[in-house]
Computed example of a mutant assay.
Amino acid sequence: MKSIIFDQIGKPANILKLIEVTLPEPGPNEVRIKVIAAPINPSDIMFVQNLYGIRPQLPSGAGFEGVGIIDALGEGVQMETGMRVSFTSVGTWSEYAIAHQRSLIPVPDAMSDEVAAQLFVNPFTAYAMVQDSGVPEGGWLMITAAGSAFGKLVIQLCAMRGIKTIGTVRRDDLNDELKALGLTQVINTETENMAARVKQITEGNGVTCVLDSVGGHTATEAFKCMARGGTMLIYGLMSLQDPIMNAGLIIFRELTVKGFWLTDWMRRVDRQTRQEVAQNVISLLTSGKIQLPVEASYSLDQIVEAIEHTERPGRRGKILMKP
């Protein structure tokens, strides 16, 4: 079978290569999946560069989630071959992948392959983070990099819950689209003073919670925008630069800064909570109430072009790999 592999750490476009490998066999509690589609997420890019919470064991496959058809069962698996499932694993940019049965989510017929391929990482993270934000109906939540696929999900979820949102962007070309999704206010970090605008928008109160994936100067400025008792949840570091936190603000506004990683959240919450989130996410996606647009799809032998497309500014949807 063909699979995207890397045997050294570096920029994805420079080190990822398509090679022929032996068809894997599932072990106990595992299944083999014929992959239909798998997205390129920021976490995938960070993983290849050894900048993620999970460290690659070289040589390694790439890609953390996807959708496919179960084609072989390991010992102890109670599922059936031929079932279409969303799944997580390491190495989903491949013709076949091995996944633990705990990571499988049966996909309803009404859900397209393009949506099912993106079912886990962004939707579950967005749903869980909006829950953990503690922002009540009518309150203010701020999301940095609002034009990202994740940002768009948060905007839609907040709009459904009556939570007002402020989103930061670096360009204005997506503003109309973001407002159509439900974004209350948009701030261009290149042309506007973030703290001054948030103070104006919130009538001097600030925001209850900031969801940040950028770090660096953007997160440093967003930190100044929080209301007394506010919380910043950091789930990424796209700038690859640490933010600077003002100790005085932390003390005198009683602010909290926390990290968020979906892998740990899934371990931390009970089985019932995980099932409820899965059911709610699937319902929202199947009904079309939440959109997961796709901008382009590429075959495995087009991995360099796919990565380069992912890194273009102003994308309006996810990039998928389709073996």
Rank of each mutant, 00 (worst) to 15 (best):
K2N: 15
S3N: 11
F6T: 05
Q8M: 07
K11Y: 06
P12Y: 12
I15G: 06
I19L: 05
I19W: 05
P24T: 04
P24R: 04
E30R: 10
V35P: 12
A37D: 11
A38F: 07
I40D: 13
I40K: 06
P42L: 01
I54Q: 03
P56K: 09
Q57L: 07
G61H: 09
G61T: 08
V67N: 13
V67K: 09
I70M: 01
D71Q: 02
A72D: 10
L73P: 07
L73R: 09
E75R: 15
G76H: 04
M79H: 04
T81L: 00
S86M: 05
F87G: 08
T88L: 00
T88M: 00
S89Q: 13
V90R: 05
S94N: 14
E95H: 13
Y96I: 09
I98R: 13
H100A: 13
Q101T: 15
R102G: 00
S103G: 09
S103H: 10
S103F: 09
I105W: 14
A110G: 05
M111A: 05
M111F: 03
A117H: 12
Q118H: 08
F120G: 04
F124G: 08
A128E: 10
M129G: 03
V130N: 01
E137V: 06
G139R: 09
T144K: 00
A146M: 09
I155R: 02
Q156S: 04
L157K: 10
L157H: 07
A159R: 10
M160T: 02
R161E: 08
I163D: 00
T168Y: 05
T168E: 03
V169N: 04
D172Y: 01
D173N: 14
L174E: 10
N175V: 15
N175R: 06
L181F: 15
L181D: 04
G182E: 08
T184E: 03
T184K: 04
Q185L: 02
V186Y: 02
N188Q: 11
N188W: 12
T189C: 00
N193M: 03
A195W: 03
A196C: 02
R197Y: 04
V198A: 12
V198E: 11
K199T: 13
Q200I: 06
I201D: 13
N205M: 09
G206L: 06
T208L: 00
C209S: 12
D212L: 03
G215H: 10
G216I: 06
T218N: 00
A219D: 11
T220S: 15
T220Q: 03
T220I: 07
A222S: 15
G229D: 14
T231P: 00
M232D: 08
L233S: 06
I234D: 05
G236R: 01
L240A: 04
L240W: 06
Q241E: 14
P243V: 05
I244G: 02
N246P: 02
F252M: 02
F252S: 06
E254Y: 06
F260E: 03
F260I: 07
F260W: 11
L262Y: 10
R268Q: 13
V269T: 11
D270E: 15
D270Y: 02
Q272R: 14
T273R: 01
R274Q: 15
A278R: 15
Q279L: 08
N280K: 14
L284C: 01
L284H: 06
S287C: 04
S287Q: 11
G288N: 00
I290T: 08
E295K: 05
Q302G: 03
E305F: 06
A306G: 11
I307R: 03
P313W: 02
G317T: 06
G317R: 05
I319K: 02
L320G: 13
M321A: 12
K322I: 13
